[in-house]
């Protein structure tokens, strides 16, 4: 069947040799799923470290965490982080279907929309602008990307072990995952609890990190 046996060519020999070498390196590889999980754990740890180095939880965190408006920030950010990490696992494998992860992410978007709608319905229009701008929008835009640097580096390193078909988009997805982790941490500091604020500034911060991830993906993947 293989003509290489009677009519060997140089390049075919090269390929045969390559196979020889590859077979010698046969040892069991680390499954990509576990690489990504380690990266996620390291990412969360590094994000927590940079959060604690720069900020601290707001003093009334024990009390306010039981209010729906504060809880809402975690209901959005934590599933977003989980969903994006799950999606990263899918897009880094050739020919793997995306599964239910996009649905989870769509659910996060729906929850955010419901939150914003409820806030708009329950607060007087005169207060909308104040709630939207909040107290420290600029800090939000600065700290979320800063906290997200660590996890983003971890995810990019993990994705290099995978094989995403579109490196830029995979990097952007890694950026969103990192930003969601960072936002969940930052939410314990941030005194602005309005869903209007979250939907605007957290999203904007996430876009910044996603853009960085896109560039990093194009460059390193």
């Amino acid at each position: 069947m293989t003509p290489d046996e009677n009519m060997p060519s140089r390049s075919a020999i090269g390929t045969d040799r390559l196979i020889e070498v590859l077979a010698k390196d046969a040892g069991a590889p680390r499954p990509f799923g576990s690489i990504l999980l380690v990266a996620a754990a390291l990412g969360v740890a590094s994000a927590a470290a940079s959060y604690l180095a720069m900020l601290q939880p707001r003093p009334d965190i024990d009390v306010v965490v039981r209010t729906l408006r504060v809880l809402f920030k975690f209901i959005v950010t934590v599933p977003l982080a989980v969903g994006m990490i799950g999606l990263l696992d899918r897009i880094a494998r050739p020919a793997a279907p995306h599964g239910f992860w996009p649905w989870l992410l769509g659910g996060v978007g729906a929850v955010l929309a419901v939150g914003v709608g409820t806030e708009l319905a329950m607060s007087p229009p005169a207060e909308w602008a104040a709630r939207l701008v909040g107290h420290n929008a600029r800090y939000c835009l600065m700290f979320i990307p800063l906290i997200a640097i660590g996890p983003l580096a971890c995810f990019i390193a993990a994705l290099r072990q995978g094989m995403p078909a579109r490196p830029g988009l995979a990097g952007a997805a890694a950026g969103i995952a990192s930003s969601a982790i960072a936002a969940a941490l930052y939410a314990t500091h941030c005194p602005d609890d309005s869903p209007l604020f979250v939907a605007t500034w957290y999203t904007l911060a996430t876009c910044i990190v996603a853009a960085c991830g896109f560039i990093a993906g194009r460059r390193f993947l």
Binding site: S9, S11, G14
Partner: peptide
Amino acid sequence: DVSTDGQDI
């Protein structure tokens, strides 16, 4: 099949 040279491993 092929009989070429050039770059290989």
